[in-house]
Design a protein around this nucleic acid. Structure first.
Lengths: 166, 166
DNA sequence: GAAATCTAGTTGCATAACAAGACCATATAT
DNA sequence: ATATATGGTCTTGTTATGCAACTAGATTTC
């Protein structure tokens, strides 16, 4: 009666959630982007229980999102740093932030703004675009099985869609 | 000893996770994008327990991400559909998918490809850009307290960053 | 028209995940 | 020698989640 793992699902979203889907995990990554490095940093800024933080950091290190560095000439002093894999999550956090700014807080109530250093303007909203940078709406795209697809993928991906189409 | 809620954190990422952060939730949304609508659709394609699915759907409806529609002339027959708020999560799923395609599966092993209907090319990678559409790297941006910030935000956002800067 | 089936769940039980706080080991500071 | 800081582990409870059984209205089959 373990919690169902997403490991065997041949789906990128599922795999991402297998790494990031636990309660607290993405907030730890967020804090890392804000400069938190030490165990106590995360603990203080999140108010997370030590054991949970310990688990999550281990998991993130294990998955290659963060690395644990012994920064200690002076006693037990470790730093947890984002790897490149971890830094690449910036786009995921941006997507979540923008969604929440729009739908939870609403325009004009954002707790935090991310701006372009050069112009001072807020960064623009993420959009899915074609290769030339033109925005694509949901109706302008379609999904197909990729090179890594298998039957599992297909079962997942074309679930009931067909059954209910009129 | 409840699970810590993120409700009181004045942070967009935390609020997004308060809505989406549970195990299974984003996979349910993913399935909705793939055309799943009925209780049994989600159940079959995910292999999720009925009670958990029931909880999650209630929560998503409650948060305005999906709506429950009685599509039943013929018996108990409901449909769960994404609202506009829910459809806007497409960008979040895209970010997660692209991250995983890059870092978990690797190029050439994607289980699923999303393509431009017009050209047949895969949609391009999400990027954070300035108002003119020029890509910005992490170093090209900075964060500031927004109009909705409070002390809580600041404590979160400038946690240890200062302490450890040399 | 009775029995089986389908849909959309709820309920009860077992276990894993999570939270809170006590405790611990190493090292430096006083 | 004592106190403090760091970075945890351990113990103990409470939820969350999974699994299976059951329910209830409506439809289909016999």
């Amino acid at each position: 009666m373990d919690r169902t793992s997403f490991r065997d699902m041949n789906c990128s979203v599922a795999q991402a959630l297998e790494v990031l889907g636990d309660w607290w995990t993405l907030l730890i990554v967020r804090d890392a982007f804000f400069g938190a490095r030490r165990f106590a940093d995360f603990e203080a800024s999140l108010g997370i229980a030590k054991n949970t933080l310990s688990d999550r950091l281990k998991h993130l290190v294990d998955k290659g999102v963060m690395e644990k560095i012994d920064a200690g000439q002076t006693g037990p002093r470790f730093e947890y740093r984002l790897t490149e894999k971890g830094r690449d999550l910036h786009i995921v956090l941006t997507a979540l932030r923008q969604w929440s700014d729009k739908w939870v807080y609403g325009p004009g109530n954002e707790p935090l703004l991310v701006k372009d250093k050069r112009t001072g303007d807020p960064v623009s909203e993420l959009r899915v675009t074609d290769s030339d940078g033109n925005p694509l709406s949901l109706r302008d795209m379609f999904s197909v099985a990729g090179p890594g697809a298998n039957e599992e993928t297909l079962r997942m991906f074309a679930p009931a869609a067909k059954k209910h189409r009129r």
